[in-house]
């Protein structure tokens, strides 16, 4: 290998760690499956619980999200322990804070929308905001699939919002609501689970190859 090749190789390695953000981010992708499950449960229980009372709906919403964060915290702590890390890394902390702030805003905003019985907008709000979170995760972890899912979800939520507003379907309890719920399940449960499974497969094969 010539000296120039050697230098180029060194630059490429350094670039991987510094520019491509291929730096340290221990993550247990099982947390993604838990979030997918929570998304499915919330999609089905949200309207009945809000209809019972807005306070009950908000409590159910908050409880499920808190459970998600607790599970995520426990799994992250476990994976960090395997690397001798006591605290979160800066990136982990950023991602966590990002989702906590998004969730807090979404919970309060959902409460306001539930008071006005605009349930359909609650689903679009969560689809849009959580996907923005996924967009930042995809960028920080350099996982293009997360970015693609996020962009797909954001565009879908905007398109559904526009369609619903144009045809006066935002208070709909019929087919259009089912379509929106279906999109939430697809965008916040099915697709993230598929990406997580793919990532788990990549991690497994990297370990097997000793990469």
């Amino acid at each position: 290998m010539s000296e120039k090749d050697e230098v180029l190789r060194q630059i490429s390695e350094i670039k991987h760690h510094l520019v491509d953000k291929k730096s340290f981010f221990p993550y247990n992708y099982n947390a993604c499956h838990v979030w997918s499950l929570i998304a499915v449960v919330l999609t089905f229980v949200m309207i009945p619980s809000y209809e019972n009372s807005v306070i009950l709906g908000t409590l159910v919403n908050t409880l499920l999200i808190v459970i998600g964060f607790i599970v995520e915290g426990v799994l992250t702590k476990k994976v960090n322990k395997s690397y001798d890390l006591d605290d979160c890394t800066r990136r982990q902390s950023f991602v966590m804070k990002n989702f906590i702030m998004i969730s807090l805003f979404a919970i309060v905003f959902s409460m306001v929308l539930a008071m006005m019985k605009l349930y359909l907008l609650i689903f679009l709000l969560w689809l849009f905001l959580i996907s923005l979170g996924y967009l930042s995760v995809g960028f920080i972890l350099n996982i293009k699939a997360y970015e693609r899912v996020a962009i797909f979800n954001v565009l879908s939520s905007v398109a559904l919002l526009g369609y619903g507003a144009y045809f006066g379907l935002l208070e709909s309890r019929g087919t259009f609501l089912s379509v929106v719920q279906g999109m939430v399940i697809l965008g916040l449960a099915v697709l993230p689970t598929l990406v997580a499974l793919q990532q788990q497969k990549v991690e497994k094969s990297n370990k097997a190859c000793g990469v």
């Binding site: 390695e13 350094i14 730096s23 340290f24 221990p26 690397y83 001798d84 890390l85 800066r90």
Partner: peptide
Amino acid sequence: RSKLLSLLIANDELPFKA
């Protein structure tokens, strides 16, 4: 060593195990 320093630059500090 260059990879090691890149990782430390990106993360400030890392445990030996990591």
